[in-house]
């Protein structure tokens, strides 16, 4: 077994410097953004929508082009919480580009979300030491689990930052829920939540947990945040399908270090 120790040492440190530096890998995507200066509806300077191709193509109803005319709502043209990263809007916009458009929608790679949990008042550090995370699969496709598992690999190596996955809810500070909330798993979710000591955070990981994602319908949907057991909880939503490990790590570090906006 000694050669594995030698091999491990020889392999060296492969971890990223994140969060000290935003050294994301080539091709990292954290969101889809619209450049309103290139959008046909804006350049034509009229209140009547000329082009709705992206809005029509979006399978998650994440785009509302009516917001493009008002400077106050400009940032809300693409609803980040509903975007599933399918890229159909980008394809649609690029097709329009062939007919006079300029390809206004594109991928972006910043980590700038509005993630303030409800009922959370001031910037404060709640957890003094390591952060323990309990995961629950409430109906996911397995991709979110794979991304959370990836946090343990040498590239992200979340242990170096004091974040650990715990098998028991009794030791957990954060409950990480993935997947649509199916009827049977919703009951289990509240059971697990009851066993987590306060103060605690709930992170709804991925589009499915927030609104059902592509499965959104009567039987498969996201959790209702107005349910009475959740009214006094710190709930954070982490969109995208599936969210990138960098995004998950970012949220966990913000909880740990008390840097939530």
């Amino acid at each position: 077994m000694a050669f594995w120790t030698y091999d491990g040492l020889k392999f060296g440190i492969k971890s990223v410097k994140f969060p000290k530096e935003n050294d994301f890998y080539d091709g990292f995507i954290s969101s889809i953004k619209i450049d309103e200066q290139k959008c046909l509806n804006r350049t034509k300077k009229t209140m009547n929508l000329k082009c709705r191709e992206c809005q029509l193509a979006c399978p998650a109803d994440a785009i509302n082009l009516n917001n493009i005319f008002d400077s106050k709502t400009l940032g809300k043209v693409i609803n980040v919480n509903r975007c599933i990263f399918c890229g159909l809007c980008i394809d649609a916009c690029n097709e329009v580009a062939g007919f006079g458009g300029m390809g206004a929608i594109n991928y972006a790679s910043d980590l700038n979300f509005d993630i303030r949990p409800q009922n959370y008042e001031v910037k404060k550090k709640i957890f003094k030491k390591s952060l323990f995370v309990k995961h629950i699969d409430t109906g996911s496709c397995g991709a979110c689990e794979s991304e959370i598992n990836a946090l343990n690999n040498p590239y992200y190596n979340m242990h170096r930052l004091g974040v650990f996955i715990t098998p028991s809810p009794r030791f957990a500070d954060v409950l990480l829920a993935t997947g649509t909330f199916t009827e049977r798993m919703t009951e289990v979710f509240f059971n697990v939540l009851d066993n987590i000591p306060k103060p605690r955070f709930i992170v709804l990981t991925g589009s499915c947990a927030i609104f059902g994602g592509v499965f959104e319908n009567g039987t498969a949907k996201g959790i209702d945040l107005n349910l009475s057991p959740l009214l006094n909880e710190n709930v954070i939503v982490l969109p995208h399908c599936p969210p990138n490990p960098f995004e998950i790590l970012n949220i966990l570090l913000l909880i740990k270090n008390g840097g939530l906006k």
Partner: peptide, 10 residues
């Protein structure tokens, strides 16, 4: 069956 999402209906 804990996470049955009824994909046919969706």
């Amino acid at each position: 069956g804990y996470k049955k999402r009824n994909y046919e209906n969706v």
